[in-house]
Each structure stands twice: as structure tokens, then as C-alpha cells.
Design a binder for these strands. Structure first.
Lengths: 330, 330
DNA sequence: CGGTCTCAGGAAAGCGCTTACCTCAGGACT
DNA sequence: AGTCCTGAGGTAAGCGCTTTCCTGAGACCG
């Protein structure tokens, strides 16, 4: 492995000069030396050791991202936004999948901390369990204490910069739409009850129901397509009076559609997130859209621009109802 | 930012001792010192500087992954496999999106090289353009010359460890299926002609056609859903005699379905990759499955186990036809 | 009771790079 | 002619950690 010293020796200059030439420092250097050094670099296929550079410069260049799972379309979309902004700012992005495990999240915070990232963005870890949340909070504080910056996506224990999708409002939009259509027997398929995303969307749904003096039957699943399919099958068998299903994300809504097809039933279904698949299933899915890419972009922007004063900044992004063909009057 | 020296001072020991205790080195240490050091670590919230560790240990711990785009379901699936194996081996994974830009790929190889990764896995960059390919090859050699390991997924210029999905066979399977159904006027919607994936799948299709003494009409698109929709719309308008469409990936097949729905036509459609969405569109998509997660797992395994001798290892993974409802006799 | 082992712990030499500071010519000025 | 810049380059001190080698003190032996 060629080092700077090798290059310098090869070109017959000091490491200082070689370093300056390679990094294009403002210090003036004669053309001849520059050429010699550059030739040596090419010949030796020299690639600077990033770790040594980080250590010597002690500037933080990378940023970390902790999400549930990049393969999940929801987070893939968010990640896309995060990457766009980070790359535009010349940052290296380190992505970590937490699989919603608070323990793993803490490990990753430490790992990113150890790697001297300038900032960490965390998405999809709004835990309600206060033990896990406060330990996490602890780790985050330790990171921030060293000058690191943290931005979170979604409601979160940790006080600090955050971009908040308006999940409550989205839930309300979905509920109101169903009630306006004339549905009265509505079943909600929620995600894990420990996630704030679930809680907030559900709260909106309940607000809409209360407005109508109605109630909504809630069952919990796991935000996956198969989970949605299984629970819908059960629901259809157990409660034939339900006329509409509000799934708290599109994956489960797609599963619900599959279960209905299998059972030969046709209830109204509304999804959440408006993922690309929504327009390609039959019937095309009515859904509550959250601008996921934008969510990511704004979170990364927050994370990279140091706060003017120390005040935590909070940005809200609105939800929007996208009407398609999966909802109708009973 | 607390350093090892801070911890050592705080505990009243030398940095050597502190380091040994923190890293659990085999050197024996009295319980009392161990307790003091660990207490100091907790109190100062010490997190070791990973860059300094890398530099001092000069062992390579991370691995790099270069893919087209993690948000793309195809690569998301592959990445999942890569991560599983890497994490199981205690490696940090650095993911880079190349967006199929050879220039960016080279940058990323250098970047990963600079970060001293132990290995790089590259997926989805089988370029035919020989200039780009040979420059890439150059970069890879430079990396390998320093002891780094490279594994590629898919056919590739670079001679070395590779796992190859059997795209040609998959194309053949798709073609034969359509011909067996009795189709004669078949249109293929291919991806960019510069990718080996496109070329290989197409070759299989042609082999099936030749067997039948038939030919296939080929048009090129870009592997995206919208690209598939647009080109299918055009196709339907221009050539009413076509009875079957072979899309070279599922995204384009889904687009084709949408275009057909819009035009009120019902041709047979076969996709490729058997992505999760395939079973949820209507009609459910017949597709050629490639075990993507396994592809990733095997590539990472190859990358992490140094070759027994220096011989490049090649693993083939077979394609499989998944019958659903989008294909029928004309 | 002097000599040899063992063991706990420390001193210090790097790992590969950046950069503040220093040196040494050769002009420009007075 | 002597002083002072100014440019071009080198010297060396770290950055935070690991690890080799060394030291000093008991334990043990004959």
C-alpha cells in the first residue's frame, strides 16, 4: 500500500510538499514539482488513507443515517432524500438498518459516534417504551456533547431538530373520507402499538370518528403486506358487518386487498403513505400521501446546517389525501 | 471529546493500561484498575475514535457495497443479502449508489479504497462500453493490489470472484413459455442495451425464438415502470398484431400492464425478477425469479472468505419460471 | 540470602497524514 | 551595501490509539 511518504520519496520532495500538491493547498509550488508529484501519484496508484486524514484534520466529514430498513420502500424513499442532500454537500453517508431494535440503534449511534460523523439522522424509531427511549436519549446526548448533530424524522423522545410528518392529520383525513362516503362500520389495521407513527395515525382516525359520534374497531398488525393480509382474512371471517378498512400503511392495504380478493369480498380500503405500488394494484389504492423524499431532504438539511441558536427546530410536513378507486359508498 | 488519555488520567493509569482494559486484551490486569478505568469510561462517556483505531491497528474492518440504487427494489433485495452476511461477520457496511454512472463508480471505489475497506461488492454495473469498463477495471486492480478483495454480481469485465445470475437461461425460460402458449408475435421490452443484464436476457429470448424458427421484436427502455408504460403505449398503437410482451424486468412489466389497461387491451405479459409486487398486480404477473437475496449473500461470502488459491471463483445461480395469471394462449 | 521467574503496569514508538513554523535564497528598497 | 520582504520548500509536532519492549517488585528456588 503506497503512502504519502512513498510518493514524496519517489518524487524527491518532502511529504509536506506532496501533501500540499495533492490537496491543492493554496501554497504556491513550482510547476515542475507539481508535475513530478502528480506523476508519482499516478505511477504508484497512490490513494490517501482516509483514516489518517480524518485523524490529522480532525474534521468530521461523514454523516450517519439510522433507519428501520432501507429495503423497505417507505424508508427507501426517505433515504433517497437524505442521500440527495448529503451527497450534494459532499458528505459520505453511512447507512445503518436498526430493524426497529432500540438496542441495535444504540450500538449504531456509538458506532457512528466512533466514526466521527458530523451528524446522525434517525428515522422510524419513535418508541413509546420509556426505558428504551431514555437510554437512547442518553446516547444521543453523549454524541451531541462532542459537537455532533442529530435530526430525527417523526415524533421522538429526544428534544432537538426534527421533521414531523403530520400523521395525526393524515389519520383524520383518512377517517373523514370514509365517513363522508357513508361508512359507519370501519375497521382500522394499525401497526405495532409501541410506535408513535401508529399512535398518531390512530389518533387522527379517532378524532374523525368522534366528530361523527362513531367508533372505529382497531386491530394491530406489523406494517407488512403479509401481516395485513392475515389480519384482514381474520377480520372478514369474524365480522361481516365491516364495510371499510383503514390500513395504516400501504403495504398492509395491499395485503388487505389480497385477502378480500381471496374471500370474494369488496370492502372500501384506504392506505397510507401513497407508495408507488398504490396506483398499480387493482383497485388502485386511495391513500394518504406523505412526501417521503422531502421528509428525508429536510431532515438532512436540518442536520447539516447548525442551528442558528441552540433552539431545537421543528418542521411539519402535511399529509394529503390521494383519491383513487379503492373507496366508495357502501 | 474525551480521548483515551483523558480516561487514563481520570483513572490514574497509563494509556496503555486503559487501552488494554477497554479492548479486553489478554494481558492480566488487577480488578481494581479495571473497575477504575471502566468507571472513568462511563463517567466521561468515552467512545473510542474509530479512525485512530484503524490507523493504529491497520486492520481493515469495513466492507463497501456499490449498487445502482438501494431504493430500487431489485437492489434493495440484493443489498439485504449483502448486509445480512456482512453484519453476521461483524463488518461495517458502507453502501454507495452509483446510479449506473461508471464515473461515480470509480469515485466510489477510490473512496472505499481510501477508507481501507477489506472488500468491495459491486452489483449492477455490467457495462459493455469497453472504455468505461477498462478504466473501472484499472481502479479495481489498484484496490486489489493493496490486498483488498472484490466480488461482483453479474457478468463483468473484471476477472475475479463473481456470482452470476443465469440471465440467459431466464430469458430462454420466458421465451419458451410464451412460444409454448402459442404466441408468435412477441415483443420484448428490454433495458438499456449497454448493460450485460439486458444483453444476456435478450440472448435467452432469442435462443428460444430461434428454436421455433421465429423472431422477436425488441425495443429498449430503461428498466423503470414509467418507461415500460410509455413504450408499451407506443407499441400498442403502432403494432396491433403483437399478442405477448416479454418485459425484461417486473417494473417495466407493471408499466406495460398499466398501458394495456389504459388502452383497453389484454396481451400476455411476462416479467423478470419476481419482485414482491408481481403477485399484487392484476393480473398477477408471471415472472422469471432470481433469488436476489441469495445473490447478495453469496457475493458477500465470496468477498469475505479469501480465495483458497488466487483463482477467480464463479458461482452460478439459476433462474426459475413463476407461473401466474398474466400469460395465456392467444 | 543472592539469583531467577513472573506478573502488573508504564514508556514510547509508530500508524499515515496535515500544518504551523522555520530556513534559505534572491530581489526590492533605502 | 545593508536590511527586509517574499516566495518555495522543508522540519517536525501532533491527531488518538495500539503494542512492543522495558521496569520494578514480589515469589520462589537452591
Amino acid at each position: 500500500m503506497a503512502t504519502l511518504a512513498d510518493v514524496a520519496r519517489h518524487a524527491g520532495v518532502s511529504t509536506a510538499t506532496a501533501s500540499r500538491i495533492i490537496n491543492g493547498s493554496p501554497k504556491p509550488v513550482t510547476e515542475e514539482l507539481r508535475a513530478r508529484v502528480l506523476a508519482a501519484v499516478a505511477e504508484l496508484r497512490y490513494v490517501p488513507n482516509a483514516h489518517a486524514q480524518m485523524l490529522a484534520r480532525s474534521n468530521r466529514n461523514a454523516v450517519g443515517v439510522i433507519v428501520h430498513d432501507v429495503s423497505d420502500p417507505y424508508f427507501a424513499e426517505i433515504t433517497r432524500g437524505l442521500q440527495r442532500v448529503a451527497t450534494a454537500n459532499g458528505r459520505l453517508v453511512i447507512i445503518c438498518n436498526s430493524f426497529r431494535d432500540p438496542g441495535r440503534e444504540m450500538e449504531y449511534i456509538d458506532l457512528l459516534h466512533a466514526h466521527q460523523v458530523a451528524a446522525i439522522v434517525i428515522a422510524g424509531s419513535g418508541y413509546l417504551d420509556s426505558t428504551a427511549a431514555s437510554e437512547l436519549d442518553d446516547r444521543m446526548r453523549a454524541f451531541e456533547a462532542t459537537g455532533g448533530r442529530i435530526a430525527v424524522i417523526g415524533r421522538h423522545q429526544h428534544p432537538g431538530d426534527a421533521v414531523l410528518p403530520d400523521n395525526e392529520e393524515g389519520g383524520y383525513l383518512a377517517g373523514r373520507h370514509l365517513f363522508e362516503l357513508g361508512h359507519r362500520a370501519i375497521a382500522a389495521i394499525a401497526g405495532p402499538p409501541s410506535l408513535t407513527t401508529t399512535v398518531d395515525r390512530l389518533a387522527g382516525l379517532h378524532r374523525a370518528a368522534t366528530e361523527q359520534g362513531a367508533t372505529i374497531h382497531v386491530t394491530h398488525s406489523d406494517f407488512t403486506r403479509d401481516g395485513g393480509e392475515a389480519i384482514t382474512a381474520k377480520l372478514l371471517a369474524e365480522d361481516p358487518s365491516v364495510t371499510a378498512i383503514a390500513a395504516l400503511n400501504d403495504s398492509m392495504a395491499v395485503g388487505a386487498l389480497a385477502a378480500m380478493r381471496a374471500a370474494g369480498r369488496r370492502l372500501s380500503v384506504i392506505g397510507f403513505d401513497d407508495m408507488p405500488i398504490a396506483r398499480d394494484v387493482t383497485p388502485a389504492l386511495t391513500s394518504v400521501r406523505l412526501p417521503l423524499t422531502e421528509l428525508g431532504e429536510r431532515a438532512m438539511t436540518l442536520a447539516l446546517d447548525p442551528a442558528a441558536d441552540g433552539t431545537p427546530r421543528t418542521e411539519h410536513v402535511p399529509a394529503e389525501l390521494i383519491l383513487r378507486e379503492s373507496t366508495w359508498s357502501p
